[in-house]
Design a protein around this nucleic acid. Structure first.
Lengths: 109, 109
DNA sequence: TAATTTTATAACCGAATAGTTATATATTAA
DNA sequence: TTAATATATAACTATTCGGTTATAAAATTA
């Protein structure tokens, strides 16, 4: 079973759970109340999120408080970084081209 | 069938394909040579990548030249952005705490 | 102690995923 | 024209995914 951050955030419900918990940590029942799926389904999503370090759980009596571990998203961040750099570079090149074209048209006036 | 960028980059082979093509565009056969899976398997991955705008294909004779569309990764970037912000904020708070603690220990000397 | 609440787990189901092999269809080269 | 090359597609398979219901276990409340 592949179990990594990329696979974890592929599911829209899990992305929502992350967003929900980033704002305020809460227990599993509260998380469940925010969705139209059963508690076991949420438990399963949680298991995946926990297994790849996206969420941590603290036992408090019979409840389990769930919290997002934001730094675990770093793996995605790092994969994305070089592409963002290339993308920005392209924009810079486009900018320079536009500047060149503008100064050229000025000279022609 | 869900088909979005998050699901597309969930597969490690597809992430590799994106990385490969970001460096230099190439045809499907060349992409295939970089992996230990069959040509139809690569074709299927390509279909998914094309369908969610991560890759564009240009027909050139019997070959198909494949190119990454970097801006399509923006969806991931945008989802990640607020979390990165929160994450940085936490570091800032930690920094401020450390500064406070340092100045306090200085006063105590 | 009995009832309630919170969570986990088992067993199941249909659909999706990631691969395979075989084959068809263009296009190019001999 | 025939052979070779590049790609697409069909049919199949095993596994995973995302959900369900039923039930168990642990902790809390009445």
């Amino acid at each position: 079973m592949r179990r990594d951050v990329f696979q974890a955030i592929a599911d829209p419900t899990r992305r929502e759970i992350i967003g929900l918990l980033a704002n305020n940590p809460m227990n599993l029942t509260s998380v469940t109340e925010n969705f139209n799926i059963s508690q076991p389904a949420i438990s399963k999503h949680m298991k995946i999120l926990i297994e790849c370090g996206l969420i941590s759980v603290e036992k408090q009596g019979r409840e389990r408080y769930c919290e997002v571990k934001l730094d675990s998203l770093n793996e995605v961040e790092e994969w994305l970084a070089p592409f963002r750099k290339m993308w920005e570079q392209r924009f810079d090149q486009l900018d320079q081209l536009l500047i060149k074209m503008q100064s050229k048209s000025k000279n022609e006036q």
